[in-house]
């Protein structure tokens, strides 16, 4: 079932065309990652999907009643705004206190209820953001470079959590990421974006595509090797295609 679909979407910022001819659809339960250099329109695409920018041309179609959970790249909470982790989870709708407690526990943050959001570490903050996005039981989880600023164990743990969430909720996940090796092993489908969709497909297909190589060059050789290693490893020991995320 298609959750969200774009047809010939074009996005402009003033006179600049940031994206053109974007045709994309996200199906239930899949993990899709968008990769691309800075300024390639990744965030603009996500913002068009959530309805924050209107495409200059083309259309974005959501499944009626589609629930989106969104974790932005960075959320700056003004220091003048006091808000605890517990209160943050009750936005935009209020939830029973037991549900909030359970969500924080599942996020691995059982002791942070009454901590101010501003006092959380980067990793904790992102986990709380994820927990908030999950409160509404989304059909589609959208993450915009959600692990930016986290160290490697931190981001690996974050991606593991996303795999868990996909498994438990059955939601689709659409994310933008710079961490190619993690992305490659954790995604069902990769979309390589640079003003338009250069190539897309299974991670190994995209990784060997000339368009992808032209953008990411040979610098990703190591990452690819790591990816292939992970990938083979998982295939040897587990028959299902739900990879256990990058370890």
């Amino acid at each position: 079932m298609t959750l969200i679909e774009t047809r010939s979407v074009e996005i402009r910022h003033g006179a600049n065309t940031v994206l053109h001819d974007v045709n994309l659809s996200i199906e239930r339960g899949e993990i899709v990652t968008i990769v691309g250099p800075n300024g390639s329109g990744k965030s603009s695409l996500l913002r068009a999907l959530i309805g924050a920018i209107r495409p200059a041309r083309g259309s974005v179609t959501r499944k009626p009643g589609l629930r989106i959970g969104y974790v932005p790249q960075s959320l700056h909470i003004d220091l003048t705004l006091p808000i605890t982790a517990r209160r943050f989870l009750s936005l935009p709708r209020r939830h029973a206190s037991a549900d909030v407690d359970k969500a924080l526990e599942q996020a691995g943050l059982p002791d942070l209820h009454d901590r101010q959001m501003a006092d959380l570490s980067g990793g904790q903050f992102q986990r709380v953001q994820l927990a908030r996005a999950l409160m509404e039981k989304p059909d589609l989880l959208i993450l915009d470079e959600a692990t930016q600023g986290l160290d490697q164990p931190g981001s690996a743990a974050f991606y593991r959590r996303i795999e868990e969430v996909r498994r438990d909720l059955g939601c689709a996940v659409l994310m933008v990421s710079h961490e190619l090796h993690v992305v490659m092993s954790a995604s069902d489908r990769v979309i390589c974006l640079n003003g338009h969709i250069c190539c897309e497909g299974k991670p190994e297909v995209v990784a060997s595509a000339p368009e992808y190589r032209a953008i990411f060059g040979s610098g990703t050789g190591g990452a690819l090797a790591l990816y292939r290693h992970d990938h083979d490893h998982h295939h040897d020991h587990a028959c299902d295609h739900d990879h256990e995320a990058a370890e």
Binding site: L75, L91, P92, R94
Partner: peptide
């Protein structure tokens, strides 16, 4: 609730309708 959500971030608000 809506005002608070929008105050935290406009994209956060859009995503939740």
């Amino acid at each position: 609730q809506a005002l608070l959500t929008a105050t935290l971030g406009s994209d956060l608000a859009y995503a939740s309708g």
